[in-house]
Design a binder for these strands. Structure first.
Lengths: 148, 148
DNA sequence: GTTGAAAATAGCGCAGA
DNA sequence: TCTGCGCTATTTTCAAC
């Protein structure tokens, strides 16, 4: 594994500040030609240093729904399988938190749904269709003692 | 203030999944012309619904320390035992979230510590001394995929 | 790592339902 | 007002060096 040099770190810092900044502007800011810069960015993406890009959405209404803690085990634990799963997780707005855990190397998700029926829909249409999912274990919260 | 229509929500969902998606691809996905789509995106940005864009960087040395998901079972599940336990939980600043769960493991806590040694201290001095605690199961998170 | 050229895209004015 | 269309500057992307 190559360590990140100063240029790589500058790229990461700039892309974290503005994920939609053009490659041309990024290249100029770090002092590279656009093609060399793009090659570094693609390499950082492929190595998993950049896991993806996302829009920061203003959360309007913190709705008082059902909280479900979900444990998900993947069929395989390859980097590629994990990356694909995590991409699907980030795409699902009902998943409020997600942690990759030690142990059986599965994930813990905190999912918020409007009610039990809504969670059933999320389970069927989103969670169970995520790539590489082998097992889903759902635990419903009765009450939030300290909220996230 | 205009409420978000179905097209706006589709745009937000897609940009949340891939913040660098081209406007042309976004437009096709939501069924608009590129210019109409771009105008909606700019409006969402200007209204503050989209606060910005960012690259999701793999955190090798995460600053906030380690995240531990803790499952705590009480000796008794009487109202009084639960009330006393929850009071102790609220007094512990390292416990960032706490949910009373259905099923066998009674509470799930998200605890943040500086490092593993710090968590050991929290475990010994705080968690294990909370009233009515019968069993503590700790799972360490390797990485936060969403939030933290 | 760079240059250069072709293809795709962004961004803007303008006209119409 | 919101949409779609045409145009141009910019950007992306790939090849060759």
């Amino acid at each position: 594994m190559h360590p990140l040099d100063e240029t790589d770190r500058a790229i990461l810092r700039l892309l974290r500040a503005d994920g939609r900044m053009s490659n041309a502007a990024l290249a100029e800011a770090v002092g590279l030609s656009p093609s060399a810069c793009l090659r570094r960015v693609r390499l950082l993406e492929h190595r998993g240093v950049i896991r993806g890009y996302t829009a920061i959405i203003e959360e309007t209404a913190p709705r008082p729904g059902v909280v479900v803690m979900v444990r998900i085990t993947l069929e395989r634990q390859t980097d590629e399988a994990m990356r694909r799963f995590e991409e699907a997780v980030r795409r699902c707005p009902e998943v409020r938190e997600c942690y990759l855990m030690t142990g059986d190397s599965d994930y813990i998700l905190r999912v918020e749904a409007r009610d039990a029926a809504d969670y059933e829909r999320i389970h069927k249409e989103a969670l169970s269709r995520m790539p590489g999912v082998a097992r889903i274990q759902s635990s419903f919260a009765i009450r939030s003692v300290i909220r996230g």
